[in-house]
Nucleic acid binder design. Structure first.
Lengths: 328, 328
DNA sequence: ATGAAAGCGCTAACAA
DNA sequence: TTGTTAGCGCTTTCAT
């Protein structure tokens, strides 16, 4: 800028003004400046600009794991949205580890990002830090996980009870007689999905036998183990709702390894619709909710807050829907 | 910092020095400062730091598409590496579009990133800009695509000729008699893979019939169409090397739709090893090269250059290997 | 319509 | 060992 100002015999203020489309600049001056800018291929230094403006036009996102296609789709949609609105995206991963999550949060704070999108690891320890961040004026939206109830921020979630209800109701409609459930880890979302499962069965007067409820987890191996357990109970399950797709895939493998067929002997419904669920040997029936909607909603919420529109924390629920393929 | 300095009745320089572990600070002072920093929960402003240091500790990465699992694995490994070394990652996607790629490059330049990792869209138009960036001292490493020969920078690639050779040689070893190829778009990498295919056949004295070479592309739909074409030629192919996995999957679908079996009637080999290739109905035999190695190599190259170690552009070749599953 | 001056929060010579 | 001063590149009052 100094260079341009010198070349043209004007002040840097003037340059700054034309670059920022201030009204109080003569058209002649404006043209001269623009011309020289073009010639020199000059680009304003965003760092200096940020320091002066106290706005970085950057949002950070922290997700547990990039390898999980679920988060990738969200990131992808989010990136598209914020880039269109002129923001940059700083990508971090926590590896489901509370300490790493904390250090990434601090890093984002140090970098003065305007907002943070967080898919929280189950890290109660970071609640205080999150509150600090919001108090400092950093916009925050939590996605996917409904943790940190004490933190007041936007949230983009799905309706987990409905997820479980849709899945189990489908098994009921398919005339399964003994409907089991592979539960997730003891967090809110697993519990809500189980609750939906219970409600669906209750609605038809089916009893729930504890032996048809298996403790599982979110991983394929968890689903495998849980299904082995379910298969050993009598009467044997002929329908199972697994807490998520990886667990459902593990469950399918266990069924096969037991010499049984999916869905003829055991029908299986998952949740989450991972990217490849329609490519596996028996395409998975599952409950999905739009990840790209999660991403764009998060982008809208955070940018609107940054740009000073909505202030009240909003809760956006992305509706789940049943995808019937062949496993149930 | 000012606040702390005032509280302690010292100068900001002192604070800066203890924060940056300068040697010339008394242990007493150092302790006092650290204590107050702790109490206040103070974190240095990285933006100001960057402005002063002319170093942002940030690297940008531009990839064509986040939805493609191939790039995700690279990004994931890269993020892990650079985050461990204290850098942040600014993620951009070009959507295979030269103009978007250009604007992302300019954005990264404006933000003064220390380095850029680029999986280039086939955008000859950006060569000049890339050269400018390197001349400005921004570290550059190109991954996956070997474009912009005029630009002097690090490159992390695989050996595409070898990819094609491994794939075709496997079909030969399997005793396929008529080995076809589904080619990619007319870019270097497709051509090299085709060259490898040619060499493998030539090595065994097999002739190549133009009718067994189909113009395809990188997408599933391309593979489907190309395979339909190949199936109509006589003698019919009994082995096909597809330029990449999506094309190979499309090809498999075409084989099934024609009422034939994989690999009994037509054996198929892909390349790239997308994440789900072992989950599909007939697990795909393919040629893979480590994406995480691509990511970590890129990270090492760029950080070493940023931190002033190697200056000479390096060319890192990630060796491909054959993964035999069930499609061939 | 244009410019001088102060300031954003930090680092780095150079003195003391 | 600590402090003074200048400066990183930009924006923004407030004058002119």
């Amino acid at each position: 800028m100094k260079r341009i100002a010198a070349d043209l015999g004007v002040s840097v203020t003037t340059i700054s003004k034309v670059l920022n489309q201030h009204a109080d600049i003569g058209p002649a001056m404006r043209a001269r400046v623009l011309k020289r800018v073009e010639e020199l291929g000059y680009r304003p230094n965003a760092v200096a600009r940020s320091l002066s403006l106290k706005r970085t036009h950057t949002v950070g996102i922290i997700i547990p794991d990039l390898m999980h296609s679920f988060f990738v789709e969200i990131v992808s949609a989010l990136e598209a949205s914020i880039s269109r609105r002129g923001y940059g995206l700083l990508l971090c991963s926590s590896g489901e580890d509370a300490r790493k999550e904390r250090s990434e949060l601090e890093m984002l704070r140090a970098r003065q990002v305007d907002g943070i999108v967080l898919a929280s690891a189950n890290a109660t320890g970071n609640t205080a830090l999150l509150r600090d961040l919001t108090r400092m004026g950093i916009a925050l939206v939590m996605i996917d996980r409904d943790d940190h109830p004490k933190v007041s921020c936007h949230r983009v979630l799905t309706d987990d009870v409905e997820v479980g209800r849709l899945a189990a109701a489908h098994l009921v409609a398919r005339r399964c007689r003994v409907i089991g459930h592979i539960a997730g880890p003891p967090i809110l979302h697993s519990q809500r999905r189980e609750e939906g499962y219970r409600r669906a069965l209750a609605a038809t007067g089916m009893a729930i036998d504890a032996r048809h409820l298996a403790a599982g987890g979110f991983m394929e191996a968890d689903g495998y183990r849980a299904m082995q357990q379910l298969l050993s109970a009598t009467p044997r399950v002929d329908g199972v709702f697994a807490v998520n797709d990886p667990a459902a895939i593990g469950a399918m493998k266990a069924v096969w390894d037991a010499g049984l067929r999916v869905p003829d002997d055991v029908a299986i419904v998952g949740a989450g619709d991972v990217a490849y669920s329609d490519l596996i040997r028996v395409p998975l029936t599952t409950v999905r909710w739009s990840k790209s909607e999660v991403g764009t909603s998060a982008a809208d919420l955070i940018l609107d807050q940054i740009e000073g529109e909505g202030v009240r924390p909003k809760r956006v629920i992305i509706a789940p829907e049943l995808i019937v393929r062949q496993s149930a």
